[in-house]
């Protein structure tokens, strides 16, 4: 357990020292500000009611979950796996007295922490900004629930990028392949709506299932099991390739 803790802290420490981490937070914050300005002007000057303050954080989440969140997750995952193999810094990580499974798990836990931090940061900043958009109080429980639920599909996406990062030979190819898979999954979901729920990218908005007055528990369970299945398969395949890699 001590070894896993050391690997996890090291990975968190490395992420926190990367410029990409701060860029992710800065871009997330600015996107919240831009959204707030757009909503404020449309609500007050264009005569179009876009959203109230209670929905502003959810609206931000619905936009970022298909744009900036996956983008920054891809950057961080690619850096932590194929990036370290390419620049050979992985040698330092792998020659520490930690077996590869603990190194892999430590990295995955650090990525999960990054996703949570990014979601939390956007949730707090969107809640603060929403005060200026409207005078009514946001529904905190609803917002909190939506952001917590969003973690799961984003984490599955991260595991997919990790798998790609263990297949690709370079950072650019890993990034391009990730974008390709992301677009293909979204495209297939659009073309074959009947099978949409089988593609995990269509679950990026599954938090909406928890927000309505009627909770469709059978759909929630079905989607949860699909996401869980993806998690197990992607984690196992990613670890298998990571374990097999010769430096």
């Amino acid at each position: 357990m001590e070894t896993l803790k050391a690997v996890y802290i090291n990975e968190i420490f490395k992420i926190s020292k990367k410029k990409k981490f701060f860029l992710a937070l800065i871009f997330s914050f600015f996107s919240v500000i831009v959204a707030a300005i757009a909503v404020y002007f449309l609500n007050n000057f264009a005569g179009i009611r876009i959203t109230g303050s209670s929905d502003f954080s959810i609206m931000v989440l619905s936009v970022l979950s298909y744009t900036l969140f996956p983008l920054f997750i891809a950057f961080i995952c690619i850096d932590m796996f194929v990036g370290e193999f390419v620049d050979q810094t992985i040698k330092l990580t792998l020659t520490c007295p930690a077996p590869r499974f603990k190194v892999f798990l430590g990295k995955i836990l650090a990525i999960a922490s990054f996703i949570m931090t990014n979601l939390f940061f956007v949730m707090v900043s969107s809640l603060l900004v929403s005060i200026f958009v409207s005078s009514s109080m946001p529904n905190l429980i609803k917002v909190f629930l939506a952001y917590i639920m969003e973690f799961f599909p984003l984490f599955v996406f991260a595991l997919m990028v990790v798998l790609i990062s263990n297949i690709a030979k370079g950072t650019t190819s890993a990034f391009m392949f990730t974008i390709f898979i992301f677009l293909v999954f979204n495209g297939l979901g659009f073309v074959f709506p009947y099978f949409k729920s089988l593609f995990f990218t269509s679950s990026f908005d599954w938090y909406t299932l928890f927000l309505g007055s009627y909770i469709n528990s059978s759909k929630i369970i079905r989607l949860f099991l699909i996401l869980l299945g993806y998690s197990i398969m992607l984690f196992t395949a990613g670890y298998y390739l990571f374990e097999k890699k010769d430096i």
Partner: peptide, 18 residues
Amino acid sequence: VPFSYLTAYDNMKLSGRF
């Protein structure tokens, strides 16, 4: 090949945590 974006001390800390 140490982590280039870290200082020597930070790199040492990575090894020291074990």
